[in-house]
Design a protein around this nucleic acid. Structure first.
Lengths: 216, 216
DNA sequence: TATATATGACTGGCCGGTCAGTCATGCAAT
DNA sequence: ATTGCATGACTGACCGGCCAGTCATATATA
């Protein structure tokens, strides 16, 4: 009879559940309002918790902010770096798979809002940009460069561009997120098509494996 | 002799000068702190003016914000739409000229900061996104589409991409500004080279004038 | 009972916006 | 010229609302 029915969570389980609810709520509030305008009390209400409870789990507003970025954003993006192309898969096809998946996740989740948040608050939270660079940007670019190597090795086109400017593969994703967040109501943009068109350019049949360093 | 030495400005001249100083100060404060965290009193101090003076020239904080965005962004970008390609200039060369100029201006001024500001605060100031779309985005895309037509007419490559996805020509500029603002300290990026590389892709010799709508 | 967890009223500082008052300038009337 | 009045740009102390963070109190598990 020590715990009779275990359908009721233990206290520490409940506490952990609260912490998660707070983090989820904070993500929404912060992304929609920005750091300064986000009110802790709104986070509490959305999490179904009293304001004081938040301070049991997080040092202060700033700590909460950095914690949710690390705990919520990063898991959403990783796992992509782990995947490998099938041996017989073209580099182009693999790249499209990766980018499309990433885009879908970003669109489904708080994609644009999070990027907005990073851009907006980045300079005021230097750790944030650094963490983001190390855990997302750098590995992402490394993967694209590796893809470039693979393309070159397999005699596919586009490898040199990928190696030299992997950012070019990402740029349309960024553009798409920005567009959807700001201008979609004026003129809808088919972002996946945009990304595919860009891949068409990178892996175009002719541009050969020796992309000239671009004269003039 | 009615005004003896005119080295002293009249009162209304001084007032106008103050308005300009306030706008300039506000641009710096807003871009560095964001809307919510920017303090009116700091704007006043930087402009060398008392707090109340700001409210003689601007309705309130929000109006000040919108005013400086309009007065700063627009002059920086317009004039570009007016320029025309030389009759014997390749479309590629003209596009490069335009994009490079725009990029240089953005890098020189508060370009990135203002774009960041737009992305960050845009959703909270719907007017702003609308104004920006109508005065910058739409004309810019229209120009790129016209360039696409020109390329097709002249039998150059790249025309179809430009007509269908003019955003692809801009994406690297956006990526470059983002990068410089956030990640340059970790890994410097040659943005003009990035833009040129992208133009190389768009105007690649082979991709012909019939870019397939991109299967899969 | 002792302890971990949760609550929400409360406090203190911050900051947007106000407004009564100052002062330099422009303008007449003398 | 000199004086006196009118104008309006400018000032900064002040007000009031807002909100991060605190803490005395309550609850319930172990």
């Amino acid at each position: 009879m020590d715990e009779s029915r275990d359908d009721r969570p233990t206290r520490s389980q409940q506490a952990e559940r609260n912490r998660a609810a707070i983090a989820a709520a904070a993500l929404e509030i912060f992304t929609s309002k920005g750091f300064a305008s986000a009110r802790i009390e709104d986070v509490a209400r959305r999490a179904g918790v009293a304001k004081g409870t938040i301070y049991l789990h997080f040092e202060n507003k700033e700590a909460l902010f950095e914690a949710i970025v690390q705990e919520t954003i990063l898991p959403a993006v990783d796992g992509l770096g782990a995947s490998e192309p099938e041996p017989d898969e073209s580099t182009r096809a693999f790249a499209e798979r990766i980018l499309t998946t990433a885009l879908a996740r970003l669109q489904a989740g708080q994609g644009f809002a999070v990027i907005r948040l990073l851009m907006a608050e980045g300079p005021r939270f230097p750790n944030l940009a650094a963490i983001y660079y190390r855990t997302v940007v750098e590995p992402g670019l490394a993967m694209l460069r590796k893809l470039g190597e693979r393309a070159v090795t397999r005699g596919e086109t586009g490898g040199d561009v990928l190696r030299q400017f992997p950012q070019l593969a990402i740029a349309p994703v960024l553009m798409g997120l920005l567009w959807e967040g700001l201008f979609d109501r004026f003129d809808a943009l088919d972002v996946p098509a945009l990304v595919r068109a860009n891949l068409d350019l990178i892996f175009a049949p002719s541009s050969g494996s020796d992309e000239a360093p671009s004269r003039r």
